[in-house]
Design a protein around this nucleic acid. Structure first.
Lengths: 332, 332
DNA sequence: CTGTTAGCGCCTTCAC
DNA sequence: GTGAAGGCGCTAACAG
């Protein structure tokens, strides 16, 4: 089944390809009469111009690339939603890839996107100086980092103010007046480090050293880790505040604690970060720091479109303001 | 910043464009020596061929389109994950759009995808005979329906066996021996209708009429609707089984019931459908019918790639087998 | 207002 | 093995 082309339309309408092209791009240098005639032919054959050819001939593809770390986390849903809202409203499309947290895969993703001539790129980079980001800079294509900051004055980003989020939480924890504080760092990423820095800087003295636990990304990981932490911190003896740097994992902790007979928040107060949907619905609703991921997606997409339109040549940088949501898991 | 082209490489390597093109497509009609020379030039300039031009010249784009109803639901995450797995493993990319459940938007989506010359298309259609699906058939492009079935012998689909899922649940409910059964149909979609049919066909007599409630898609909708249903069904007087055709909404019901002092499952047993992550973690873990959405995505993508490769000209049809997960919300 | 003429970057015969 | 030439479908000057 052969695709019909602009030439077919032109022939049928008895005009030149150029004229058809003009009505396609809504140029008003065409008499209304011929424009109508052409339009009806286009209708008749339900002709759809070939974007590849258009792109090759110099028009922007109106397609942007999105590279995320992985799909199956709550972050991506909201992000996609936010991006979709502005992208589709502006008649752009987007294609997605996942890096699976692997820098090489991320780089491949960038190459693949570049190959297909996206007009711009949104990326939640594995790290702010991963090869992919460097490659993007070299390429000269507009791009915006999401959930990552950059020292480089030329790169745009949208990120939650994780430092502040950590600080907010620490203030709350301070007010709880517990005998000890345990921090579980579940994942090694710049955003997580910021959360912890903000938390530690604001916390009154007396915190236990941070427990680092790489790759505790899931509910199950938290569930598994809970007994170790309980023992390490002698939670049954000292009133404890526990800060887990990620909600999903925090909920795993809570579930296990309850099973172990540790009462939340009486014996141990637990707080998370991200304020995912689950957090308000789970067994003991979780105190958490909320960052609007959907807004992040929206903002980043808007920035990117601006960069593409060259409405501004300056990079955009935005720290989204987090806020604290106090729920039962820390209510004394 | 000008893109370097095949001509640049050819010149630099002292060969013709054709030869470069040959090494690009790994043709073995090139002497190893020149091939190596060309490769190193390609390396040196980190040259990336222009997919638009390649596509225009007749090569497949290796890009497939995915149209989903909306992003912010649990379905999409797992679907994207499944699709990504097979698509990226086969060196394809994909672009996504959301229909927002609007048939016109869905149709636009198809057009947009067609315009950008995707090699094939995956879609969770608003309905199996929406204009978008018709258009797809007309276009002749390979496509697979997800979460929808079709009578049409020419169209491929991957769908959960929702009828069976409903039946499984009904058997369980039968064993509970309640005084009444209430069905809340939260959403008007063919899959939901199948669930209910399966449920009703298998249920022993004595069920209350189905309560239809369009657009109850969210947790909050369930939360709001709960009192009405409780009153309508005199839940406080009769031991009741409640089947809500969607987990997220079911959890909203449960939360509100608990607040109203209705004990789950003693006074009312509640079951859902989908087995989303939340269901095992929420306050009263929810009995639900599990369909592996990730598998659905994977299977659909595999089918599509087969169709694209023309390994088979026959449409594929697959009903994914659901299974029942019994949790506290119905444990007597 | 409309048609003509060049490309855009690549692939694919067809010769050599 | 390799090069030359034509064409994929469209847009963007440049003429009328």
């Amino acid at each position: 089944m052969k695709h019909i082309t602009i030439a077919d339309i032109a022939r049928e309408a008895g005009v030149s390809k150029a004229t058809v092209s003009r009505v396609l791009s809504k140029s008003n240098l065409v008499s209304e009469k011929t424009a109508n005639r052409i339009s009806s032919v286009i209708e008749k054959y339900s002709y759809i111009p070939n974007v590849l050819a258009q792109g090759l001939a110099g028009k922007p593809t109106r397609n942007i690339g999105v590279i995320v770390d992985e799909f199956p986390n709550n972050f991506y849903i909201d992000l996609a939603d936010g991006i979709d809202k502005v992208v589709s409203a502006n008649n752009y499309t987007f294609q997605v890839m996942s890096s699976q947290w692997e820098p090489e895969r991320e780089l491949e993703g960038v190459h693949s996107m570049l190959k297909s001539r996206v007009d711009g790129l949104l990326i939640t980079p594995v790290s702010c100086d991963s090869p992919a980001v460097l490659e993007l800079k070299k390429s000269g294509i507009p791009f915006v980092l999401i959930n990552s900051k950059s020292e480089d004055p030329d790169v745009s980003y949208v990120c939650c103010d994780n430092y502040k989020g950590g600080a907010l939480l620490a203030e709350h924890v301070n007010s709880l007046g517990h005998e000890q504080v345990i921090i579980v760092s579940v994942f090694d990423h710049e955003t997580v480090r910021d959360r912890i820095r903000g938390f530690e800087d604001t916390l009154r003295a007396g915190a236990l050293p941070v427990i680092r636990y790489a790759n505790a990304k899931t509910y199950n990981d938290g569930y598994e880790l809970a007994p170790t932490v309980a023992e390490y911190g002698s939670i049954t003896e000292k009133k404890t505040s526990l800060f887990v740097t990620n909600d999903y994992v925090a909920i795993g902790f809570i579930t296990r604690f309850l099973e172990m007979g540790i009462s939340i928040p009486r014996q141990a107060a637990v707080a998370g970060f991200d304020d995912i949907r689950l957090s308000s619905i789970c067994r003991v609703p979780l105190t958490s720091v909320s960052q609007s991921v959907c807004e992040m997606g929206r903002t980043a997409a808007e920035y990117l479109l601006n960069l593409i339109k060259k409405s501004s040549r300056f990079p955009f940088r935005k720290l989204i303001d987090p806020h604290l949501v106090i729920r039962e898991s820390t209510k004394m």
